[in-house]
Design a binder for these strands. Structure first.
Length: 265
DNA sequence: CCCGATGTTCGATT
DNA sequence: AAATCGAACATCGG
């Protein structure tokens, strides 16, 4: 579910986590830690103080005294701060006790979870370039597209290339740039437009606190309003805002893809 | 009731 | 090497 704008929204909502200390960790789902066994994870995380909360791609990076507590929300994860444990704990998979309050992790589908990395280099192996990093330049994108021949939809979804884009925003960006999602990346002409539109779409969505279709929430059940700004995603059968043609939906790169056949070439 | 679909990622198989 | 598929899991709608 959450892509870069939603994860950024969650990171912003966790600002108060800075300088708090993790007193204890409790989990209710055995696969919640991806890269360590539970006792090793707890040894590394408990009694550490939070230095900063940032994001790379779709990962939430919580820098501790030593090492990084990393969270990925996958499809339905929700991470938020609360003074008390919620009444409804049906989907609560874990929580961190922060002495005065809690950081709670809910996840309907149980795909998401946590990592601990002792160094950021170890984490960085998992992802490519984030659109908000200085490495993300027009020239970098042009070289990346020219040197590959996959469909642009597939390439933009590849987290080891650009990290942070997912199914909603790739469809939105390609619609805005008038690029057909199956176009091979090395044949694309409007790379400058594509580069600018990646940042434009992400900026706009972050301003609206991301997109809530069904499950995305931040800061304990607040929802994102970018849903109202979507131009193609979830608009199958409706009219294209640009050319009035019907928006179609087709599986591309194994993902449900929305586009306008008439004005995306 | 059963089938398909859901915003993600990983690993196995073509 | 790159594309495709299923699996991880819960829920909802047709």
């Amino acid at each position: 579910m959450p892509e870069l704008p939603e994860v950024q929204t969650v990171v912003n909502s966790l600002a108060k986590l800075k300088n708090k200390r993790i007193i204890s960790f409790k989990s209710f789902h055995s696969k919640i830690i991806y890269n360590l066994d539970h006792s090793t994870f707890i040894e590394n995380v408990v009694n550490k103080k939070v230095d900063s909360v940032k994001r790379k791609g779709k990962y939430i990076l919580i820098k501790l005294d030593t090492g990084y507590l990393v969270c990925h929300l996958r499809m339905t994860g929700q991470l938020f701060l609360s003074d008390k444990l919620p009444e409804n704990r049906r989907h609560m998979r874990a929580y961190f006790n922060l002495s005065k309050d809690f950081m709670i992790y809910n996840d309907i589908r149980k795909f998401g979870g946590f990592y601990y990395f002792s160094s950021i280099d170890e984490f960085n192996l998992k992802v490519g370039v984030d659109p908000y990093e200085k490495e993300f330049t027009f020239k970098w994108l042009r070289n990346g597209l020219k040197s590959r021949s996959r469909s642009i939809k597939h390439l933009l979804l590849d987290q080891k290339f650009i990290c942070g884009l997912g199914n909603i925003y790739v469809d939105e960006i390609l619609w805005l740039t008038k690029i057909h999602p199956e176009k091979k990346s090395n044949k694309i002409k409007m790379i400058k437009n594509l580069y600018e539109n990646i940042l434009t779409v992400l900026d706009n969505s972050i301003k609206h606190h991301g997109t809530t279709i069904i499950n995305f929430t931040f800061d304990n059940m607040k929802t994102g309003e970018f849903k109202n700004e979507l131009k193609v995603y979830a608009r199958e059968g409706m009219r294209c805002f640009r050319c009035n043609n019907k928006i179609i939906r087709k599986k591309i790169a194994s993902r449900s893809t929305h586009y306008c056949r008439k004005c995306q070439k």
